[in-house]
């Protein structure tokens, strides 16, 4: 576990460094907020409504397809590492596994899910 301590140290130092530069900037920068300045940018017009709205579900479908393949990749990594010892059996197994998922991709393709409108 000791080697993973470096990851924690890097995360903390990274956050600390950024906060430190924010603090440094606070010392030298001006602060003069007023209502017009703090308005949301919308090409110099008054912003119309919130932008926290319902969103095109196209993004959601892509995210869903992504999750399917991402889970597959989680299985691919141990297979790739152990491939040298496993030989032909692992290769055939993985080809079958990939083909099953590619059938899924072909289905999504056929259904027009991958089309961005």
């Amino acid at each position: 576990m000791a080697e993973y301590a470096a990851v924690l140290v890097f995360l903390l130092v990274g956050i600390g460094m950024v906060l430190f530069t924010f603090f440094l900037a606070r010392l030298v920068r001006p602060a003069n907020p007023y209502k017009e300045k703090n308005q949301n940018y919308e090409c110099a017009e008054k912003p119309v409504g919130d932008s926290w709205i319902q969103f095109n579900n196209r993004f959601y479908i892509f995210a869903l397809v992504f999750v399917v393949f991402d889970v597959e990749i989680v299985f691919l990594f141990p297979w790739a590492v152990a491939f040298g010892q496993l030989g032909l059996f692992a290769l055939v197994e993985m080809v079958i596994f990939i083909c099953i998922l590619l059938v899924g991709l072909a289905y999504a393709w056929k259904k027009g899910v991958l089309k961005w409108v």
Partner: peptide
């Protein structure tokens, strides 16, 4: 850039807005 004023829009979600660059 270090001398530039730091602007947070009025309607922004302040915590999310602050932590995104970090």
């Amino acid at each position: 850039l270090i001398q530039k004023e730091d602007i947070t829009p009025m309607t922004a979600d302040r915590a999310v807005f602050y932590w995104a660059p970090i």
